[in-house]
Amino acid sequence: MDRNNDVESTVVMDASAMAATLNSMAMAVVNGNPELESLVLLGILRRGEPLAKRLSALIEQTTGIAPPVGALSTTLYRDDLHARSSANVASRSGETYFDFSLEGRTVLLVDDVISAGRTIRAAMGEIMDYGRPKRIQLACLIDRGGRELPIQADYLGYIVHTTADEWISVQLQEVDGEDLILLHERCDK
């Protein structure tokens, strides 16, 4: 963050709003998947994974079925490693891990924010290397616009279209100690 600029932050979602949003997303997932037994959740590291665990727990509360949850690290499948000027895939945010087959299942990808869509493209490429799911769905807490690929979420929490001077930060209890989503705006003098 540039120290010469002021940054204004507004709350997009506090803890109770996030809980309510996740609850309605979980209900939508249940409605969208009559065959709940074949559903598996893959959370994209780092903040998609705790969200996937919460969705699974919420689904279990209403249906009694807890879909299995895994973690997906998409770094080895990204198409922009080169452009990042560092090919740094040193495993600091964790590695892909799940212990169930994807063959013939419905995979629900879970991430905190969707923007360009390139993470989701990378995740789908990786999933295909692990097996052939029957279908892949996508759940995102925030859509901040700026899509570069034709990818949309099937289950969406909230839409905030950000400008070039704005960015979103997502904090989760499991990773950051509290549930809070902020919209930051850089105010040039």
Partner: peptide
């Protein structure tokens, strides 16, 4: 990996 494809596209 136990999956079909022991390969990444880097």
């Amino acid at each position: 990996r136990i999956s079909r494809i022991k390969r990444v596209p880097l």
